[in-house]
Amino acid sequence: MKCGFCGRHYTPEEAVDKESCGRCLRGCQKTYCPYCGYGNPLIPGFFDRWVKNKDKEGVDDE
């Protein structure tokens, strides 16, 4: 992931665990940057699948 505030890259495993503020209905929907602490929104699973499918469509078999 790339932090929307500081621009550094990190993996979800490196993200800082913080206690939920209670505003998200399905639990905390953010991952916190280990470098600056900014709360980045989680990327939905359907978006990851969409990007992977787009990458496959763009490959030419020539």
Rank of each mutant, 00 (worst) to 15 (best):
Y32G: 02
R8H: 06
P41F: 01
I43Y: 03
V59R: 15
I43A: 08
C3T: 03
K52W: 04
E14C: 03
P44Y: 10
W50I: 06
R23L: 09
F5M: 09
D55W: 02
N40L: 00
K18S: 02
C36Y: 10
G4A: 10
F46E: 14
G39H: 03
D48I: 13
C28G: 02
G7V: 11
P34N: 05
K54F: 13
Q29S: 13
D61K: 14
P34C: 09
R26D: 07
I43M: 11
E62S: 11
V51L: 13
C21V: 04
V16Y: 02
S20R: 03
G7Q: 10
C24N: 04
P44V: 12
V59D: 09
G39F: 00
C24P: 03
K2Y: 08
K2Q: 13
T11Y: 06
C36V: 12
F5A: 14
D61H: 14
C28D: 02
G45K: 14
Y10E: 00
Y10A: 01
Y35I: 12
P34Q: 04
D48M: 14
D17H: 05
L42D: 06
G4M: 08
R49K: 15
G37V: 03
N40R: 00
C24D: 04
K52A: 13
H9C: 05
A15P: 00
W50F: 15
C28T: 00
C33P: 00
E14H: 02
C21D: 13
P44I: 09
Y38T: 11
D61T: 13
G7R: 10
V16Q: 10
F46K: 10
F46M: 11
D48Q: 15
D17K: 09
T31C: 04
E14Y: 04
G45M: 12
T11V: 06
P44W: 06
P41Q: 05
K30F: 15
Y35E: 08
P41D: 05
G7M: 09
P44N: 13
T11M: 06
P44M: 12
K56C: 01
F47V: 15
C36A: 11
